[in-house]
Amino acid sequence: MTTQTVATTNTSTASIVFAAAAGMMLLFFSGYAQATILHDAAHDQRHAMAFPCH
């Protein structure tokens, strides 16, 4: 029982960390990355979401 609990907690901690990291990567790409082509494509949306990007 104890082992089971520990195993479950470990799995979910790993997946929580994974989900958080995936989210931050996507947000960096959509909100922060400065490459001109990305900036232009995301322009209207960044303004509306108030991402400070330029």
């Binding site: 960390v17 989900a19 931050m24 947000l27 959509s30 960044r46």
Partner: peptide, 21 residues
């Protein structure tokens, strides 16, 4: 604009479900 709305909200969605979990 539509694509980046989706990418942004998927990104926030990951953070939100991570916190929910």
């Amino acid at each position: 604009t539509m694509a980046f709305n989706v990418v942004t909200y998927v990104g926030f969605g990951f953070l939100l479900v991570a916190l929910m979990a």
